[in-house]
Amino acid sequence: MKPALLSSSALLVLLAAPAAAYTVYVSNERGNSITIIDSETLGVVEEVPVGQRPRGLNLSPDGKELYILASDDDHVQVMNTETRAISHTLPSGPDPELGVLDPSGNPLYVANEDDNLVTAIDVEKHTILAEIPVGIEPEGMGVSPDGRIVVNTSETTNMAHFIDTDTYEIVENILVDQRPRFAEFSKDGRRLYVSAEIGGTVTVIDPAKHEIIEKIGFDVPGVPPEALQPVGVRVTSDGAKVYVALGPANRVAVIDGETLEVTDYLLVGQRVWQLAFTPDEQFLFTTNGISNDVSVIDVESDTVVKSIPVGEQPWGVVVSPQ
């Protein structure tokens, strides 16, 4: 056991050296700021003040524009990632919470919690392309890899709404468990993972057939079941591992993408909300809303290697493509 451990940590050191330096952006919901982290040094570079109650974050494919959903300002702020200044805002409708970018980088689809709408925003022309009525309290947003379907989850209606991005019409509604928070497609587009915060489950959906494949539950000894509240979900690009942030359980669950069994629970900071990989998938960053830090998970070994203090009540996280 011991030699194996030693060699794997030696390997880590070797691997860590040539890793590319990415930039990690963390929105601080209460701090009204973005914390910028260097993925190589795992140190904070800067904390930039932005609009009111920043939550969801998206990056343009070229990494030049950071879209900040400033919930209490009722618009999207666009940060120029070179100057780190806000270059302009986009109209989003009221209280934008989470958004998802078309794989091409345009449009940006945003969930408006207060208005039961999903808004499609043209990020180049700065105009609203469409407003799509969905269920009550829309929140989670996922886009299929081919960009043809956007999935929105509505927290009180408890559905995943499948929206055709050509017609902006809902083509299917799938009932999931209580308070769905997040929707994430696998890279091959064959699976859709939807987390339900109060239901305590992740529903795995076949997006082509619109059928539920599996419902994944969680169980951590010593943690009361009502604290197991799945929020953010990320899938490795080969689909082999699925990571689920479990909120006040202070854990990230690791799920085998084949068997859909939970293989591990990683202890992170308090009230873990959202997750983001580095593009090389060496690290997974988690935002921990109550402990005001970001945990760094080494994806290969599934170990938490560092916790980085950030601003007040971190919520969203994205990592630059370069």
């Binding site: 927290e155 009180t156 408890n158 209580q178 109060i198 305590g200 009502e226």
Partner: peptide, 10 residues
């Protein structure tokens, strides 16, 4: 039977 009621648990 479970109901979400904005109180952090079912």
């Amino acid at each position: 039977f479970e109901l979400a009621g904005f109180k952090g648990q079912a």
